[in-house]
Design a protein around this nucleic acid. Structure first.
Lengths: 113, 113
DNA sequence: CTCTATGCATAGATTCACTAGGTATGAGTC
DNA sequence: GACTCATACCTAGTGAATCTATGCATAGAG
């Protein structure tokens, strides 16, 4: 996968896995890898700053906890995060449709699942 | 549309419009706008550097001509450009499928055309 | 003559994922 | 006990690539 393919779409992916339920950072990374069948195996240096950015933007909130001697910061979507995800997902689908128009796709995408 | 959505995908789009036939830079911009129904209305400062980059990479070649007193640089795909487009289009579809897996798409995309 | 569209170009700003490092705990191995 | 690995957090700096802003030049319309 191209190194820049994610640009501008990472926030949506993070919001999407958190829409399933609160998770701490490391679990977000695992969820992205599992759900994408290894396609999105993101380094911590990518995901942690994204989480901080989304919290600063008000789309996430977090609480600290301690589980078996390890500090965890668990993130959950705010209301703004929920609507933000919906907005980004809609934009994504328009983007995909536009790219399809340009590259000349005719039929529906092959199902992956 | 997000400002960064194109990151890493612009090359594919440029190659796609040139796969339809040789075009000069300004015409590439027009083709992208027309084919995407205005969604991709890209500034010259985006497209010209992309064309130069693709030519340096050997995916495009260009010739100068003069039409009605205006200098034109017309680009066409090389063989590497044709295969490069196929590669990028395949990667794009895998990327779209992976994003779909993460954000929980179930059915096929709604047809846009 | 001015303004717009056409047609090319580049320099600098900006965004954002990634690389590379750092800290710390728990569990398993030798 | 020492070592290694997985878990779990963090940030500074790099790099790639699009966008903003600007410049030059010609043709045509008003």
């Amino acid at each position: 996968m191209s190194q820049q393919a994610l640009k501008g779409h990472l926030d949506m992916l993070v919001l999407a896995v958190l829409a399933d339920g609160p998770k701490h950072g490391y679990a977000v990374i695992d969820a992205l890898r599992d759900r994408s069948d290894e396609a999105f195996d993101l380094p911590e240096g990518t995901v942690y700053p994204a989480l901080h950015r989304l919290e600063r933007a008000g789309l996430l909130r977090s609480e600290w906890s301690e589980v078996q001697g390890r500090r965890r910061r668990t993130y959950h979507l705010t209301d703004a995060g929920t609507t933000g995800l919906a907005t980004r997902a809609a934009e994504w689908q328009r983007f995909v449709a536009s790219v399809g128009d340009v590259i000349g796709r005719s039929g529906p995408w092959p199902a992956s699942a």
